[in-house]
Amino acid sequence: MKASEPWERAGDKIRLQGFNLELWKYEGEPGSLIPLLQAAQRDYSYIPEAAIHYISDIVGIPPAQIYGVITFYTQFRLKPLGKYLLRICNGTACHVNGSKLMGQVIEDELGIGVGQTTEDGFFTVQSVACLGCCSLSPVMVINEDTHGRLDPRKIRKILKSYQSAG
């Protein structure tokens, strides 16, 4: 049991802290597993192990099977995110406009590859299939902000601006 995990044991039940109570509305409704996982990830930025057991209790599906569902869908994470989630678009339009090169620049600037988080927990880099703003390609999104028509110089400037803003 890690101290950092947001849960505690109450009798033989596991109690999660900060878990959105609204979730209970799903109880008993078939097909609620994925919305529950999505809610857990929204609350914690990832799916803590305790949440898997907790959800397993609600929906009556064994934890192993839930784990199978989690690993099937790329949206779900089993590790926390960095402060900033940098998603580099690798859609077709971005690809033909040089997204691979942009990915390399990001990799070199941050010293991490796709799927990794910087040591200081500042940036997590992900690659996504298409963000749907193809006319701005190549594109990356940092948290909610889209940055389009990238070139190496622009990327460096953008990353610096985040780093200096803290």
Partner: peptide, 25 residues
């Protein structure tokens, strides 16, 4: 509304149905 969870194959109709049911797509 059901939100997808990031799997291209879930656009295929039988996979999509499996996903709505809460299973692997």
């Amino acid at each position: 509304i059901k939100e997808g969870a990031g799997a291209f194959v879930c656009g295929e109709e039988t996979a999509l149905i499996a996903s709505i049911e809460g299973r692997r797509g």
